[in-house]
């Protein structure tokens, strides 16, 4: 029963995003907002009834989860790219709060530093450089909205339906190491005291213990990508000869007599 309710909710959510997409004739934003808020409320209500046991942290979870979904909707539906970037930053912050609620402080702060602090600022930088005169008409035309929404919501619905079928996981941090990396599967269970004080150290021990090869490989991959990006973007631009005499390096202007 629950999967079908989920699928209906996801279909409605897709419809809300479709309505809110920027169109030259003006989008049906008010209807989309009502529908979207309804879908989020339905999702959260479904979760509160079937998935999570009530405790004091749940209020913050629902608040920031709802806010994150709303902001994510605005990222794809806002006609001004700078606003999309700002809403994306809001999504990142909300997700960071959700991670803090789950006691994953390290992940939360890393998410903020990397996404909100570096990647998004670069996005904003590019957007500002590319487009200094406010909204242009291309921003009010969504490109293939129907296909994009169909694909993304079908994927999201499939994942949600599958997650719903998994039995509740016992509250115990386990790290199953695949056979390919090491020969012996390692199971790490954190003692209660370490859970209380956060587990940055434990994450480090897992990352640079059993998963060392994977971490280093992905690091090398990123390094290669960075070098490649620099090699592609950095071109020597030939400067056309203006006919003026070439001056020695470092000298500004032509030499003028003192009087």
């Amino acid at each position: 029963m629950i999967p079908y309710i989920l699928y209906v909710l996801f279909a409605l959510g897709g419809a809300a995003i479709y309505l809110a997409m920027p169109k030259p004739s003006g989008s049906q934003r008010r209807a989309a907002l009502v529908l979207g808020v309804g879908v989020i409320a339905g999702l959260l209500a479904l979760m509160s009834m079937h998935f999570v046991a009530p405790n004091s942290n749940n209020f913050f979870f629902y608040m920031f989860a709802g806010l994150a979904i709303l902001a994510a909707g605005r990222v794809v539906t806002h006609p001004v790219p700078t606003y999309s970037a700002v809403y994306f930053a809001l999504v990142i912050l909300c997700v960071a709060v959700l991670l803090v609620i789950q006691r994953a402080e390290f992940l939360a702060v890393a998410l903020i530093i990397i996404y909100a602090g570096a990647i998004l600022v670069t996005y904003a930088f590019v957007i500002m450089l590319a487009q200094q005169s406010g909204a242009v008409s291309t921003d009010t035309r969504a490109r293939e909205p129907l296909m994009a929404i169909l694909v993304s919501f079908v994927i999201a619905g499939a994942i949600a339906g599958k997650i719903e079928q998994i039995d509740a996981v016992p509250v115990k941090m386990t790290a199953q190491v695949p056979q390919a990396v090491t020969d012996v599967p390692i199971e790490t269970t954190l003692p209660a005291t370490e859970m209380e004080s956060g587990h940055t150290k434990a994450i480090g021990e897992i990352m640079f213990g059993p998963y060392l090869v994977v971490v280093e490989l992905s690091g090398i991959l990123l390094l290669i990508a960075m070098v490649g990006a620099i090699a592609i973007s950095r071109k020597q631009v030939p400067i056309e000869d203006t006919g003026e005499p070439k001056l020695p390096v470092g000298q500004i202007g032509r030499e003028v007599p003192p009087f």
């Binding site: 702060v109 903020i112 530093i113 602090g117 956060g198 940055t200």
Partner: peptide
């Protein structure tokens, strides 16, 4: 917090906004 130093870095990186 467990990540006090990273927290300052994160907050500082938001300052550019």
């Amino acid at each position: 917090p467990d990540v006090g130093l990273l927290y300052i870095l994160g907050v500082g990186s938001m300052g550019v906004y």
